[in-house]
């Protein structure tokens, strides 16, 4: 369980970035009340901050963590720390502009933070795309990290907006597209492991042998089914549906990430 802080950090940071981009995008396209926007952005800042704090626990020397930006020229980990740190800083500033109700400043800060957030997820995935661990060394790592963000972020923001009766965009469609993409990536990932180097095939064997693999699949399928069935039936999305789907996907992504680290077999 040495990598548990990294499991929590990657899932929460991707949730925070996905949620932030969703909030910023909706704020650009329609109207969100100040109180709602502030509530969501502060929640995201708290989640993003918790992610940073938890990530420190995987270091031998957490108080020296500031040094992790020194090798930005070549190290993807340095780049991730830099981009994500800047993202959290800017998302705090973005929340401040919600307090001040300064829409144009929010728009600009949000745009820069969005780019930094995307760069942070990209860097995060690149850290793990290393030949030494064949199960990680493919583009599926990149897709999986971004899809965690695409699935969790809009659902998180959607829960708040539905409860406050302000959901004006079709977030369900975004999440369903995310679900379909995640299913394709999952299939490509598993077949890539099976047909890859012996260490990659061993990672798959280890993963499938654990109960959490099946819990992850079950929660993913149930969440997908709930959202798809209610969308096809043209049923009005409620706060309860979004909350249940969000919690199921959070569990599913957490377990998938846990397996990502725990079943990694080195060359």
């Amino acid at each position: 369980m040495h990598d548990m802080p990294l499991v929590i950090f990657t899932v929460l940071s991707q949730l925070a970035i996905g949620g932030f981009v969703t909030l910023w995008w909706i704020d650009q396209k329609s109207t969100i009340q100040r109180k709602t926007g502030l509530l969501i952005s502060l929640s995201l800042v708290v989640i993003g901050g918790i992610a940073v704090l938890v990530s420190l626990f995987h270091l031998g020397h957490p108080f020296a963590a500031y040094r992790a930006i020194l090798n930005i020229k070549v190290s993807w980990l340095s780049r991730e720390v830099t981009f994500y740190g800047a993202f959290v800083g800017l998302s705090m500033l973005y929340s401040w502009f919600w307090i001040k109700d300064a829409a144009s400043w929010r728009g600009m800060t949000g745009a820069v933070a969005t780019i930094l957030g995307i760069l942070a997820i990209f860097s995060s995935a690149k850290i793990y795309m290393i030949p030494a661990i064949p199960a990680w060394n493919s583009m599926t790592t990149m897709f999986m990290f971004f899809l965690t963000s695409i699935l969790l972020g809009p659902l998180f923001v959607g829960v708040f907006l539905i409860i406050r009766g302000e959901l004006s965009m079709n977030l369900t469609a975004v999440v369903i597209v995310g679900f379909i993409a995640a299913t394709v990536v999952m299939l490509v990932y598993f077949s890539g492991l099976q047909g890859g180097l012996p260490q990659a095939a061993e990672s798959l064997r280890l993963a499938v042998g654990q109960l959490i693999f099946w819990v992850r699949l079950f929660t993913f399928i149930i969440a997908f089914a709930i959202l798809a069935i209610t969308a096809i039936g043209k049923q009005k999305q409620t706060g309860t549906i979004y909350t249940v789907v969000f919690v199921l996907i959070l569990i599913s992504e957490f377990l998938a990430r846990l397996q990502f680290y725990e079943t990694a077999v080195h060359l």
Partner: peptide
Amino acid sequence: LCIGCQMCGKACPY
């Protein structure tokens, strides 16, 4: 300089 992140151990094929 090391902060004990252990990333080098993961990245080294050996």
